[in-house]
Structures are given as C-alpha cells and as structure tokens.
Design a protein around this nucleic acid. Sequence first.
DNA 1: TTGAAAGCGCTAACAT
DNA 2: ATGTTAGCGCTTTCAA
Lengths: 342, 342
Amino acid sequence: MKTNINIVAEKAGVSIATVSRALNERELVKEETRSRIIRIAKELNYKPSPIARGLSTKTTDTIGVILPDLVGEFFMDIIHGIDEEAYKANRYVIISSSHSQRDIVETLIEFMASGRVDGVILMAPQMHKKVADFLTKSKRPIVLINSCSDLTDMVNFQIDNYLGAVSCVEHLIRHGNKEIAIIKGPAENCDAQERYSGFLDALHKNNLGSKRSFEVSGDFGIKSGYHAFIELMNQSRKPDAIFISNDMMAIGAYEAAKTLGVKIPQDIAIVGFDDIYLSKLLNPRLTTMHVPISELGAKAVNYLLKMISGEVDSTKAYKEVLSTKLVIGGSCGCSNSYQSFI
Amino acid sequence: MKTNINIVAEKAGVSIATVSRALNERELVKEETRSRIIRIAKELNYKPSPIARGLSTKTTDTIGVILPDLVGEFFMDIIHGIDEEAYKANRYVIISSSHSQRDIVETLIEFMASGRVDGVILMAPQMHKKVADFLTKSKRPIVLINSCSDLTDMVNFQIDNYLGAVSCVEHLIRHGNKEIAIIKGPAENCDAQERYSGFLDALHKNNLGSKRSFEVSGDFGIKSGYHAFIELMNQSRKPDAIFISNDMMAIGAYEAAKTLGVKIPQDIAIVGFDDIYLSKLLNPRLTTMHVPISELGAKAVNYLLKMISGEVDSTKAYKEVLSTKLVIGGSCGCSNSYQSFI
DNA sequence: TTGAAAGCGCTAACAT
DNA sequence: ATGTTAGCGCTTTCAA
C-alpha cells in the first residue's frame, strides 16, 4: 500500500491538515508535533504527491521549454543552462521542440492549457503574428529567449549581437585593417540583422565607409561561407579583413582560403561569431565572439520563476541583453595569443 | 472561469461521467450524445486536465530522461530521438541530468516516487551497485540506454561497439594493412572495453596477432589522441594503420600527424569511431563508424511506452544492440570515396 | 446508454 | 496549535 498523507497522519496521531502544514508551513505547527511528523514521514518514506498537490494548488513546479530544434551544441547549451538553474530551484523541466508537423503555437497552447507547466521559456527565432498574439493573451508567464526584439511588450532575454559585431569590427580596425568586408547571415534572421547593423555602424563610427561589393550574403552554413569567401577574394580590389557573421561560415571560409592559397591572417584577417567548439580547432584558431548561451537559459529560468512566484510583475515587459565576449585566436592577426588546442 | 468537465456536462445536458466516457471510451456512449459532447467541448475549447486525470489514473503521459550530462551533440542527439518519438506518441518528456551534487540514484528515486513520470529512460555509463539495486526494485518501468551490458536482468538498448570495432579493423585489413595499432579509450569505460575486444578479435580472426606496443591508451579526449599518435609513430617498428577508439582522439591524431609530417592515409591509415560532426570536416575526411544515437533514444522510448502500457512484460529483461555503420572517408585509403564537405 | 457518487492525495478556509 | 471539511477535475465502480 502506497503511503499517503492519511497514513502519516494516523501514525502521528494528528489530522492530515497538520501533516500538510508541518511539511509546508513550518510556523503554523508546534515544533514538537512538527518534528514528530517529519520523523514519521521519513520513516514511512513518505513523499507528498506533486500531482495531488498540483490539483489543489494549480502549480506543478515544472517549467516548459520550447525550442525550434533539438540539434547541435547550441540548443544543448541552452538546455544545460536551464536544467542547472531549474535544478537549483527544485523545478522540473519539460522539453519540447516545435515539431515540423505542427506550429509552434500549438505546442505552446497545449503546454499552457494542459496545466502541466507553471510557465514557459520560448525560443522563436522568427516570430509569427500568431505566436505574438497568443503570447500577449496567455495567462501563464512566458519568457522569450534569443528571439527578435521587435516584440517590445514581452519578457525577452537576448544576446547582444549588435555590440558584439561592433567589437569584432573594431578589433579588426585596431589591427589597422581598413578594407573590411562582411559575410552576412540570412536576411530574415534577427541575429544576422543585428550583426550586420553592428558591422555598418562600427565602420561609420570609424569613418570607414562600407563598400557594397564587400557585403556578401551567406546562410550561416559552411558551404555558403566557402562561396562567399571566394566571391570576396575574386574581386579586383580585395578586402584586408572579413567579419564573418558566424563560425560555421568561417569554417567554410578557411577551407576556401586553403583552396585559393590565401593565408590567414597574413593575407586576410578574419573574425567570426558564436565561439562554437569547432572554432578552437581551426588553424589558426579562430578569433570569434563568445555568446553566453547557457547563461541565457539560466537567466531566463530565474526570471521566469520570479514571474511565477509573483516577485516580478508578469504583465510588465522586460528585456535583458547579455554581453558577448571576444575570444582571441590567431585569425585576426593577434599572433602572440594564438594557442593550439593541443 | 476555467471550463472544466462540469461546464461541458451542463451545456450538453448530461452527467460528467458521460462526458468523461465520451472523450475516452467511444464505445460506451451513444454516438449521437458522443458527437454532441465532442462538439460542445470543442466550442468551449475544453481540454481535460492531465493533472486531475493523473490523480485518478496514476498516469502522467510523461516520461523521464536522466542523462549523465547535458553537453555536446551526443546527448542532444539522444534527446532529439526521444523527443521525436515521444511527440508521436503524445507523451511529454522531462529531462534531467544527474547533477554533480547528488547521486544519479537520488534523481531517479525522486522521479519515480514523485509520480511525475510513468517511466524513465536512464543513461548510466558506469553503473554503481546502488543504482543497480534500485533498478531491480523499482515499480515503474526503466529502460537503460548506452549502459554497460553486465546488467543482464534489465531492459537495455545499446550500440554494437564490438561488431563496429571488428568492422573498422577488418576494413583496415582489407586495405592490406597488417600492422594495425589501436588507441584505446579509458579502461573503465564500457564502450572503450567493447571496442577494444572487437579490435583484438578482428586481428585474431584474421591471423594477425596484436602487439603490446601497438596498444596505447587514451581518454577519449583530443589531447590524448595527439600524444598516443606520437607514441605510436615514435616506435622503431611503426604500424601501417591505427584504429582509434573515438573521433575526438582521431582529431588529436590528425594534429599530431601534421606536426610529425606524417601523411594520412599514405603513410598511415586511420579509422575512427562515433561519426561526430567534426569528422566530416577533417582533411582527409575521417573514415569512421556511425553510431545511431538518436535511433537509440527513439527505440528506448518505444519500448518504454510498451512497458508502461503493459504490452510487454516490464519485469522481463530485454536487450537490443543497434548496429553501427561504416562511413567511408579518405583516412583509410579509400581515396575514391573521399568527398570534401564543401 | 446514462447517472450518482466515491475516491485519487493534497491544500486551505473555517472552526475550535 | 490543531481539526473538519470542502474542494481541485477527473475516472470508475455500481445502479438504474
């Protein structure tokens, strides 16, 4: 027979209400009774049923996480950060990806309606109106991560792509480069847009106009980096440095450089963005912008829990932009700081 | 006001019992009433509360997943496979890592006792007796994945490390190599042990004794692969091929080869194991053994759900060993099949 | 084919 | 400081 609150109450010679109180609100119960109840509960190996408690309190001690995909180290890092914080706070984490078959909204609505979670962390790289509409209506708290910033009335934790890009470019400028090109990410991607803005502004701020021909587009994939690099180096007037919007494309660029016999950083300086694991293995090691992915997840959890507990007002918008950090490798010309991964 | 079963019953002019039956057991309700109830439920946007249902039925439609870590593409792949299948079966997934602070058993027990999940998928690379003890006692079904196979009385889904290693080595033999070395993984790691066994048996089966000096140890990390490679190449009598127990160490070996000026595959043939993303980016692309990680997760879910539903006997041991598949790159000497990743 | 009512295990308002 | 009791929203016998 499963031990429940009744068994404990009986053994302790008190009512179930007292047991409940002893376990939840320490002040309302005489210390003597309390400790006896605790002891008996332990003896019986009694654990209150979170389901029953949930039915009564409308809480689940569980948060939902909806990610666009469950592939690659990036999402793993997010989950890692979330798990770590949730664990510290004694919360459980339900993970779901917005499966191709159905819309992300469906997942979201079902999560919410089902009462399985007290709140949700949502990553929606491109925000449809449908999602946005739902978000504003939702009763339960939602925290956006790494989502476009045009949703001003939401709680949103983001990476500072803009300033990160500015720093990348200014680092190249500090190396004396004046002909700086960019390999952009996909036009519809918010990260890519912000990084592009940072690139432009950094140039202007330093009185270095950007050349149309020095702006080529990629799709964040390796191959596109390869082709973009070749396109840039085939021009009559070549850039002396390239800001590549993400590390994957930088890998492609390295490969292209090898093909063309172009030396990094002697012939051309390169800075990437994301600080993926692979970037450490490139030769020379890629200079790139570290983005605090797992910290993003961790912060989102903490804020969400505050929304749930009422410590912060869930209806109020909040935005936090996490700083990135330049990781120096050998690709930008900082030769002294090049370190092999071995 | 939240719409619950009472509201629906009222609007439909029936009792809540009928509503419940209409939604769950289609046979027991007159078709006419049933469709009316369904329609009204839809109109009211009624979704039964899984919490309330859970309290009554002792089920949660949720499975727990406990992984040793939440880092890297490997675990992400597992989660991906699990999520995909769970979604198809309309189940939710609670993820947790065995956080350093507390034992994996604690996580497991709490999961089970709390009644939050109907069953658990557990990955425990090295199995303590404590865990094993608990496993046999547990009331709720547990499926082991990628865990050591000495737990014969459990349900266990594994990768066929042994046959995979045999295939790797035999592939090298087919290339005419006769002096085959191995870079082993950590001694306490089951995967490493099984791969080592496969290596030995493949040699013996083909009348190629193994040399003690051709067996060096690594720890599955890049650096150890680097040093192991150098150790092998520094011997007076050099191997003509190396079976490297995992791809990470192969990366280190590549780096060492570059340092030593050793050409792959001309001077030495190499085969790795795991088929990690990175292996495609090596030059020449690494010949390696693909392991069906996400499939492992998927199969585990399917079996677990059958245990939960009673379709299979949870008390009965079951073991399934998933086949690996050789991915040909250029490192083994199969020059014709070398393809750049671009 | 349907309804009434007793749980499931807990919390929380009300009473003492 | 503790007990009584009415839910929470559903499933599931037992009756009708």
